[in-house]
């Protein structure tokens, strides 16, 4: 077992685009992040960021269509814990993610952008890739420091 071919570890969850599955997604991320040795605080942040990404996919990419496919790929090495989240729904142009003007949101009753802001604030790296008509991918990464934070 020691003669590991690669230090890169992968894991995968395929799930349908339903909000009732968010709990299972969070549990999957929790187990993987614990195994990767991340701190409690880092794990909480990753769980929330992944929840926000999947919620956006369910609401915006699939517009609550319940049978869309969401694929989560974990890619962990010694330095980084990365989750790639792929969907096959409507593509989306993230544009510039700035700090939300809450008062404005509040007046306009716009909440959707909060999740994107949170993802950016909670993770070390957030990348969007879109191949129109094929798939969308958001890649969320957290650095693993020697002290586990």
């Amino acid at each position: 077992m020691e003669a590991d071919k690669s230090k890169l570890k992968k894991d995968k969850l395929e799930i349908k685009s339903r909000t009732e599955n968010l709990a299972e997604i969070r549990e999957f991320i929790n187990s993987a992040a614990l195994e990767a040795g991340l701190s409690k605080e880092a794990i909480d942040n990753i769980i929330l960021a992944v929840d926000e990404a999947c919620t956006n996919i369910i609401k915006h990419a699939y517009k609550y269509f319940p049978d869309g496919k969401i694929v989560l790929n974990l890619k962990t090495d010694k330095k980084t814990f990365t989750i790639e989240i792929i969907d096959y729904g409507t593509s989306f142009e993230p544009g510039l993610v700035t700090h939300p003007d809450l008062q404005k949101y509040f007046n306009e009753k716009r909440v959707g952008g909060l999740g994107m802001y949170l993802m950016k604030a909670l993770m070390d790296d957030v990348r969007y890739t879109t191949v129109p008509g094929k798939f969308n991918q958001v890649s969320l990464s957290k650095n693993i420091n020697s002290n586990g934070r």
């Binding site: 919620t55 909440v111 949170l118």
Partner: peptide, 13 residues
């Protein structure tokens, strides 16, 4: 999550 936070925003006004 932000979906929960949104509920407070929806009713405050």
């Amino acid at each position: 999550s932000s979906a929960g936070l949104g509920v407070f925003m929806a009713f405050i006004e």
